[in-house]
Design a protein around this nucleic acid. Structure first.
Lengths: 194, 194
DNA sequence: TACTTAACGGTACGGAACGTCCCGTACCGA
DNA sequence: TCGGTACGGGACGTTCCGTACCGTTAAGTA
């Protein structure tokens, strides 16, 4: 049968998430309505609400469905080069469509939806941060970094300015900027104060 | 007359912003409706819309009305101590009520309202960043920092991780964390890679 | 003081989207 | 064959939006 009147289960789930991504790119994630998503997916509102309790939860799963090929760190032995490679591709992912706008919309939602904030941290931010720290730890264990090197703070200094630009100043997030941060982190901004 | 049935002009403006702050703290800025604000202020919706085109714009002016005593940098001659003082009080301001939740709500709105994002940068983020850079520049001119010291990048490294915690990980933003960042910025995280 | 004018509170309105509910249908396994 | 269940469709009451129109009232002007 070439015709499939309406399927069930995972089929519907995938169709709804696809409709979310399509509509999100067309009209923007902020203007997205559950009704429009349901209509686009050829589903009823019940079917949407059966799966996701809120628009934010739907956005979140749609984001993960796009990003499933998680960003894994390379390990060439050169910590700076590996961080560079990894952060460059993370920036590319978080900047371009469809993930970029969706990601920003999710962070926006997370500001007044604690369970979304928690999910975002547990299943997206946290794992990425853990991978960065793990790669840094390996470099430290191999003697490329001082034993006193503060791994989690280094991660925060690498991530913070990027999110600052993405969410606040909204200036373009370039590879060159990533390189400036890496350079500052490993070779310093200048000598200590007198 | 002790009784003031209803005043005009600046009186109404102030009353509406006050109602916004009160209601925001009571029910949360996300659930705030223009109708509820108008009712609380004893104003009609027309009067609110005459002044602000959107809820986000109202939030923005309400934020500035609280924060008007702008954060100015001390200048004791010690750059690290002055940064510490300034950032500590900025963190206190942005963490506690009523500014903290309101500020987060505004950044949330800015993600899908470009004019709010622009206003936020021009009248809040930008001026604060400028003051930080100016204070750093003075220290550099006085020889406390290397002539090659990257002022704007230092500002980003100071701000970024704080906003990262405020908006993403939502861990408590402590003075001790600020101190860790300052320490890393000026004395380094550890030696360069081999 | 008397008149004019602009801002005001109140209210009604159409529209959009919310989240819930019910109905009749189509698939599925026992 | 027969229940169980997920489904599409659609109606529902609600909230809030932003606008329009009232009669009233305070402030400015002569």
């Amino acid at each position: 049968m070439t015709d499939t009147p309406h399927r069930r289960g995972a089929d519907r789930t995938a169709a709804i998430m696809r409709a979310t991504l399509e509509l999100g790119q067309e009209i923007g994630y902020a203007k997205l309505s559950m009704e429009a998503v349901a209509a686009r997916a050829g589903a009823s509102k019940q079917t949407v609400y059966r799966r996701w309790p809120s628009k934010a939860a739907l956005l979140f799963d749609s984001l993960l469905s796009v990003n499933e090929p998680a960003l894994d760190y390379p390990d060439t032995g050169d910590i700076v080069a590996d961080l560079r490679t990894q952060i460059h591709s993370a920036v590319d992912l978080l900047t371009g469509p469809p993930v970029g706008p969706l990601f920003r919309a999710l962070i926006s939602e997370a500001q007044h939806a604690p369970q979304i904030a928690a999910a975002l941290n547990e299943r997206f931010i946290g794992p990425q941060a853990d991978k960065t720290v793990a790669r840094l730890r390996k470099a430290r264990d191999e003697g490329q970094l001082s034993p006193a090197f503060d791994l989690t703070l280094a991660m925060a200094i690498l991530s913070g300015p990027l999110y600052f630009q993405l969410l606040i100043t909204q200036e373009p997030l370039t590879h060159a900027y990533v390189d400036r941060i890496l350079d500052a982190l490993f070779t310093g901004l200048g000598p200590s104060p007198a």
